[in-house]
Design a protein around this nucleic acid. Structure first.
Lengths: 246, 246
DNA sequence: CGTGAAATTGAAGAGCGTCAACGTACGTGG
DNA sequence: CCACGTACGTTGACGCTCTTCAATTTCACG
């Protein structure tokens, strides 16, 4: 575990090439990134860094899922970030990690050594501009999330999370969520609870309630089918015109 | 109200010059910004834009306070941003406002016409780099806020908000909050409730409780004195080592 | 087939929301 | 100058949602 693969995989065939922080780079810029990058793999459940640790790299998520979370002194924890493939991890200019980072599934990171990356960031507008875009997107997502945490009921929270996951899954295949579409929940009930500011028991109860109401169907504990996507959206409490405009 | 002041105030004497999006600009860059900027004033309570409206400018807050908020279809609202002097409003590349923006106090904005600002952003690294820094700071703040919304009790939420305000007030005078320091609450009870995901009644009750416990003292309804800052921090539920490292 | 983590379900109670009444400060007009 | 209106804030009573604690079930994997 935690092996460092020294073979340089080609950026050309990289699955996150078109969305990651390097997506606006020219071939010569990719070549420079290549020199400061290395891959890291993590097993499911494995910590990437603990809050307070020094981090000598920033990274792109290539495959798998990572979570950012914060913990109060008595152990209550809140997830504050959910990193999917192409998302960026770390903050240029910052030495110490402010959050616990955990690999929720098998995780592959494309790591860049921090110091040289910071140097490139200053000299390479195509990187800093893409990072700005991505950070603004994350800020929007965080604000949607704040509305969920602050004002939604348990049922609405669950419906919102299912909607978000369904939309991201669909987006990977470059389409909108359709009736009858299904997906695998990438989170345990406890992780969903930490995402939504609930207990895992409440998460479980509300998922059962949505199943009983016919809003969702379950195969096993993780595989969800949504027979009528509009019906699920209705349960989120959101304004009907829904998401963020561009 | 909503008058447009056509006199170009000098950037040199601007009170937010050292922290705003233009803080890294050279004199010639400031001159270019000067050509696309204009000031706007808003009265307390006045809307700046509604969610869904077109916004033909982005802006820096020069003086006063603005809030960003979202509303569910049944009227529940959650504040998702609190803009103080030097904070940036708007997103380059976005036409439609995703949030309601309201002037909570008398508010002065330094507005930049959107199109030319976007052009400058691409051509002027000192602006895009500063905007990236500021956006990353806001993302950190949003994540702290998510912990408050998701996991803290009503009392901890109030204590956290008071701590945040005290620290910002102190930072304006370039010092840390001290015992006996006092400040004016810039928000109504209702605005505090929208910030914290509570009702205004709960906010009022918890403020009274903190007063009864001797953690804070009140003169009138808005003026707060904190006799022992560590005692207030203890009420936030945060880890003792506290805030975000740099 | 056995074992442990993950998930479900139930019962009881705390915390916060809801509804309602009342208090306080401030400005306006008779 | 005082009555009045309004916005803001406080306090109380009650009930619902979600948490807490506990027992049980399901499922993946050795």
């Amino acid at each position: 575990m935690n092996e460092i693969f020294l073979d340089q995989r080609s950026c050309q065939s990289c699955p996150i090439r078109h969305r990651a922080v390097c997506s606006k780079c020219e071939p010569d810029e990719l070549q420079m990134l290549d020199r400061i990058k290395y891959y890291r793999h993590y097993d499911p459940g494995q910590p990437v860094v603990w809050a307070g640790d020094e981090m000598d790299f920033v990274a792109s998520v290539v495959a798998g899922i990572a979570t950012l979370s914060q913990t109060l002194e008595d152990g209550r924890t809140q997830m504050v970030g959910l990193l999917l493939p192409s998302d960026f991890l770390g903050r240029p200019g910052r030495v110490t990690a402010p959050y616990d980072v955990t690999a929720t599934s098998a995780l592959t990171l494309c790591c860049f050594r921090r110091k040289p990356f910071e140097k490139m960031l200053v000299e390479t507008p195509s990187i800093s501009q893409r990072l700005l875009e991505m950070t603004l997107d994350e800020l929007d997502a965080a604000r949607q999330w704040m509305l969920i945490l602050g004002r939604k009921t348990a049922r609405e929270k669950i419906a919102s999370l299912l909607t978000i996951i369904a939309q991201r899954e669909a987006a990977l295949q470059r389409r909108a969520p359709t009736n009858g579409s299904s997906f695998e929940l990438p989170l345990t009930r406890e992780a969903m609870a930490d995402y939504l500011g609930l207990t895992l028991e409440t998460v479980s109860r509300q998922i059962s309630a949505l199943k009983r109401a016919g809003i969702i169907e379950l195969e096993g504990k993780r595989f969800v089918t949504v027979p009528d996507f509009a019906a699920l959206m209705d349960e989120t409490g959101d304004d009907s015109d829904g998401g963020l405009p561009v």
